[in-house]
Simulated scan of single mutants.
Amino acid sequence: MTLDLFAALEPQPSREPITQGAVLLRAFAAGEAAQLVRAVEQVTAQSPLRHMHTPGGFRMSVAMSNCGRYGWVTDRRGYRYQPEDPLSGRPWPEMPQAFRELAVRAAREAGFDGFDPDACLVNRYEPGARMSLHQDKNEQDMAQPIVSVSLGLPATFLFGGMERADKPLRMRLESGDVVVWGGPARLLFHGVDTLPDGDHPLTGRCRYNLTLRRAR
């Protein structure tokens, strides 16, 4: 098979509007997915993934860590950003340059120039894990967008309205897909449906999600 035919089998980037202020960038990170997964492994070797608890005491099914100047955490004291990993008391790992550069490029492609993320939440979904509909509203600057990167097993992304009860759109996300939302879409409810079992050549039986934000 020729190189041209191999290239034709690779996912081709495309831009799919979701709603005003929200865009799905298909395969935007596909070419660098392996590099991103290696960076995830380096980050989580320093700050291990863990199942945090909500203020109500519920254990989250998604395992989490952070990198960057700030990390998002949840416990009995509430949802918040803080500069140190509560497990170690040390600063979160530095955000890999590959994460930052990808987020800036994706935000620009979606129409948000000047994005400067200082926090990256790393989520690991294993079969059966899910993320209920929620808003990202712990950040101080709501003018900055959110950039969400999918790596590994495919998942169904849920993108709703301004009320939790609004019926969400359902979108299948593949490894390398990037969703960006901001502006009028910044506080829309969103989540991830229960991850089915599978095996991906990059990540095995799991999916990683990188959510890059400007926290402060």
Rank of each mutant, 00 (worst) to 15 (best):
L3Y: 07
D4H: 09
A7T: 10
E10I: 13
E10A: 15
Q12I: 12
Q12P: 03
S14I: 07
S14N: 10
P17C: 03
T19P: 03
Q20P: 07
G21P: 11
A22V: 04
V23T: 13
V23G: 06
L24V: 10
L24N: 05
A27R: 02
E32M: 14
E32F: 10
A33I: 15
Q35T: 15
V40C: 12
V40P: 09
V40G: 05
E41N: 11
A45N: 07
S47R: 02
T54D: 05
F58W: 14
R59D: 03
R59W: 01
A63S: 14
C67L: 08
G68H: 01
G71T: 10
W72C: 02
V73E: 10
T74G: 06
R76G: 13
Q82W: 08
P83H: 08
P86L: 02
P86K: 05
P91L: 03
W92F: 12
P93H: 01
E94K: 11
M95V: 02
L102I: 06
V104H: 04
V104F: 02
R105T: 08
E109A: 15
E109D: 10
G111F: 02
G111T: 04
D113Y: 09
F115C: 00
D116F: 08
N123D: 10
R124H: 09
R124A: 13
E126V: 15
N138P: 00
E139C: 09
Q140H: 14
D141C: 11
Q144S: 14
G152F: 10
L153D: 07
P154W: 09
T156D: 13
L158C: 03
L158H: 00
M162C: 04
R164K: 13
D166K: 03
R170L: 12
M171H: 12
L173R: 01
L173F: 04
G176S: 06
D177L: 00
V178W: 01
V179M: 10
V179I: 13
W181F: 15
W181G: 11
L187D: 06
L188D: 08
L188K: 12
G191V: 05
V192S: 08
T194S: 14
L195P: 08
D197S: 15
D199N: 13
P201S: 02
P201T: 06
L202M: 09
R205N: 11
R207M: 09
R207Q: 09
R207C: 07
Y208V: 09
Y208G: 11
N209A: 06
T211G: 06
L212H: 00
R213H: 02
R213N: 04
